[in-house]
């Protein structure tokens, strides 16, 4: 299908200089091209582009999901930023989410790299370990919540039992405001399977010759790790940091299942709002307090923030292997 296009490259038709292949619709093979991407395009427009644009519109309105939206201009945005009567926990949710991101992303990457190094170093049974370490990723979120509420239980929890062995006193993990974020970040690190697989691929792509050269030059394992492995993995790390931060800023399911507990408890984000993730805050306003307009505005604030953060990372972080 593509061959006629290739055959008519301008370089091969010097008879008509300046006349280039017209891009766009109109030619038969273009039509086929459009047809082929049509399903993806239709999906993109209906399920992503249109809802996003609609959300942008609703963010300028006061809308409760069933009566007609009322245009209020920028009021949702200014109220979110400055009116702490209307949105008493907006800034708290920002703070919680940033703290969570700062703790969870490095912890996840360290756990993922550690696991990848271990799997990479064993010769037998690496498939089994890879499977076991990946399991937390494919476990249903509700089950993850139930398991970890048990593990963190102040009376019977395994976490306290293990820490007790080394003399650390019992903690009430999910009910002490200061401990909530570390506890959540630890669960995120436990679910680092995808990052682990990507790191593993990165490790496999480091040429053996470089390692051997380092060994000949007399570099020990620690030196090899910091001078060879870490620099060679830089593109992988960059990718994982960028995607990890985006995911951490949008954390929702984990917080929701950890704090929703028994069916009748309402989710207000843990003790003293210490686990009130930004997206949980959006959810509450959208579906519990019927303030869809404000929720849409919060979503857009998050979108812009993520775009800025990602841009800054692309601009200032080293991406190339060295």
């Amino acid at each position: 299908m593509a061959s006629p296009v290739v055959a008519q490259r301008p370089a091969e038709t010097p008879a008509r200089p300046g006349r280039r292949r017209r891009p766009g619709i109109g030619r038969r093979d273009h039509l086929i091209g459009w047809l082929l991407i049509a399903p993806a395009l239709v999906y993109f427009i209906i399920f992503l582009l249109y809802p996003a644009l609609a959300a942008l519109y609703y963010s300028f309105t006061e809308w409760d999901l069933h009566s007609a939206p009322i245009w209020v201009g920028l009021q949702n945005y200014t109220d979110l930023f400055f009116d702490d009567v209307k949105y008493p926990h907006f800034w708290k949710s920002v703070q919680v989410t940033l703290q969570y991101t700062l703790v969870a992303v490095p912890l996840t990457l360290i756990a993922a790299l550690g696991q990848a190094l271990l799997i990479n170093s064993i010769r037998r049974g690496s498939n089994l370990f890879r499977l076991l370490l990946f399991l937390p990723v494919v476990t249903a979120e509700a089950a993850v919540g139930a398991i970890w509420r048990w593990l963190y239980d102040p009376q019977y929890g395994l976490v306290n039992a293990v820490l007790g062995l080394v003399g650390i006193p019992r903690q009430n993990w999910l009910n002490t405001p200061e401990l909530v974020i570390p506890a959540l970040a630890f669960i995120a690190a436990w679910q680092c399977g995808i990052s682990m697989i990507i790191y593993l691929a990165g490790l496999k792509s480091i040429p053996e010759s470089i390692r051997e050269a380092a060994v000949i030059d007399g570099a020990g394992p620690v030196q090899r790790f910091f001078k060879v492995v870490v620099p060679m993995l830089r593109p992988t790390t960059f990718y994982l940091v960028v995607t990890g931060i985006i995911a951490a800023l949008q954390v929702f399911g984990l917080v929701y299942v950890i704090f929703s507990g028994g069916g009748n408890r309402s989710v207000t984000g843990g003790p003293e709002q210490s686990g009130l993730a930004y997206v949980l805050h959006i959810y509450l306003y959208a579906f519990r307090y019927n303030a869809m307009g404000a929720a849409c505005a919060m979503s857009f604030i998050l979108l812009v923030f993520i775009m800025i953060i990602t841009f800054v990372q692309f601009k200032f972080m080293k991406q190339e292997a060295s």
Partner: peptide, 10 residues
């Protein structure tokens, strides 16, 4: 005390 009652199904 919370450390007792925060346990699951106390």
């Amino acid at each position: 005390p919370r450390e007792i009652t925060d346990s699951d199904q106390a």
